[in-house]
């Protein structure tokens, strides 16, 4: 049974592509056969984050328009052998995507025995984002703990409950998960940033993961290695936890409290 997971947010720059890359690596590391697809036609980034940008010959749009086969366009990851990347086109625009074409690609991936299809949605609520979520079984809504990101995520959650195939056919709901990124417990403690509880309360959803703000993310992106593969990083551990929760395991939330202060700091630090 193939499950389609859309990683979406509404707002740009919150970490959708980083999350797509890390979640798909995490699923593949657990032996699942995973295809991760970049829906951001014209602004492709996933291939960079995955470190396969030099190996892109054919892309998603080529497959949809019948210019190559799906097999030719799927790029096998060099680190994890059950992980495949389908890059976006850098030269086309979003109009090149069609609902029928996307469905065909998903059907073919299903027939190939993929366990998960991870769709990296573009920002916004236009065609690319709509098609990325349309066929989804589950959605991971990436949100930063700040008001505009939370508002946009709320909008996306509204679309997920009305503008998806499941909603239109009355075939149950898209299962929604919240993933907080760029979380800084220290700034939450000083009141500069919204807390996990605030975000949960506003969006009325449980969180599938809380990823701390870290310099490791930028370093990993520049190196083309999904951050989940950096085993020394808290970010990697946070994404591993999120993958475990997506697979139905119960894992307590980490990295949401400020590191404990020492005795003297507590007594005299105010």
């Amino acid at each position: 049974m193939t499950e389609i997971i859309v990683v979406t947010s509404g707002k740009g720059g919150v970490g959708k592509t980083t999350t797509s890359a890390s979640l798909s690596c995490g699923l593949a590391r657990r032996g699942k056969k995973v295809a991760v697809i970049d829906f951001d036609i014209g602004l492709r980034n996933l291939d960079l984050i995955m470190g396969c940008e030099r190996r892109v010959v054919y892309d998603f749009v080529n497959v949809i328009q019948g210019e190559c086969t799906l097999k030719q366009a799927l790029i096998r990851d060099k680190r994890l052998e059950t992980l495949y990347v389908l890059a976006a086109s850098q030269t086309r625009d979003k109009e090149a995507l069609t609902s029928e074409g996307v469905r065909r690609v998903f059907d073919e991936l299903t027939a190939e025995g993929f366990d998960y299809i991870v769709c990296d949605s573009p920002a916004g609520i236009e065609k690319g984002a709509h098609l990325a979520m349309y066929f989804a079984d589950r959605a991971v809504v990436v949100v930063n703990p700040e008001v505009s990101s939370v508002r946009d995520s709320d909008r996306i959650l509204g679309l997920l409950s009305s503008k998806t195939q499941r909603a239109e056919q009355g075939n149950g709901q898209v299962k929604e998960h919240l993933l907080l990124t760029r979380y800084s417990p220290k700034r939450v403690a000083t009141g500069e940033m919204m807390s996990v509880e605030d975000v949960k309360e506003i969006l009325g959803l449980d969180v599938v993961g809380v990823v701390p703000e870290s310099v490791d993310v930028l370093a990993a992106s520049n190196a083309g290695v999904p951050v989940i593969l950096n085993d020394n990083s808290d970010v990697s551990r946070a994404y591993e936890d999120a993958v475990a929760r997506l697979l139905g395991e119960t894992v307590p939330l980490r990295f949401i409290d400020e590191p404990k202060k020492g005795f003297f700091a507590r007594m005299f630090g105010g």
Binding site: R151, D152, D154, L157, G158, L159, S161, I202, L203
Partner: peptide
């Protein structure tokens, strides 16, 4: 019974409306 999300509208014509979930900012 579902949350009313930002950007969504719910209208109860000729009757009362009962929302058992949250009504987000912008809804």
């Amino acid at each position: 019974n579902q949350p009313v999300r930002s950007g969504q509208r719910v209208y109860a014509r000729n009757r009362d409306l009962i929302v058992t979930a949250n009504v987000a900012a912008g809804a």
